[in-house]
Amino acid sequence: MLGTLETTDEGRCALRFERHLAHPPAKVWRAISDPEELRAWYPVAADLNRPPGTAVALAFTRVDLPDSAGVILRCDPPRLLEYSWDADVIRFELADDGNGGCVLVFTNVFDFGREDAAPVDAGAAWHAALEVLEARLDGVAAERDVFERATELGPDYAAAFRSGAAG
Rank of each mutant, 00 (worst) to 15 (best):
Y157Q: 04
G53T: 01
Y83N: 12
A22R: 14
D96K: 00
E36R: 13
T61R: 00
D145L: 02
G11R: 13
A142C: 02
G100Y: 01
F92A: 06
W85Q: 11
A59P: 04
C75Y: 11
A45F: 13
E115S: 11
G98Q: 03
D88F: 13
A40H: 13
G53Y: 02
R16S: 14
R50V: 02
A166N: 08
E10Q: 14
L38F: 11
E82W: 04
L38P: 08
L133G: 08
G98S: 03
V146Q: 03
G3F: 03
L94H: 05
A57R: 14
G70A: 09
G167T: 08
D138C: 09
L38N: 08
E36G: 10
E36A: 15
L80D: 06
H23Q: 13
A125V: 10
L5R: 09
D96P: 02
F92T: 09
W29C: 05
F92E: 07
V103L: 14
Y42K: 11
R162P: 00
T4I: 10
V89G: 08
P43Y: 12
P24F: 02
H23I: 06
G70F: 08
D76V: 15
E115T: 06
P66A: 03
D138M: 11
R91M: 09
D156C: 08
S68F: 03
D111L: 01
I90S: 10
G3T: 03
A69G: 15
S84D: 05
R136Q: 15
F110G: 04
V109K: 04
P155L: 02
D145K: 00
R19G: 11
D121S: 14
C102P: 03
L5Y: 06
A26R: 07
I32Y: 10
A40Y: 10
K27D: 15
R16F: 07
L5V: 03
P66Q: 01
A135D: 14
D76S: 13
L104N: 04
A165I: 12
R162D: 10
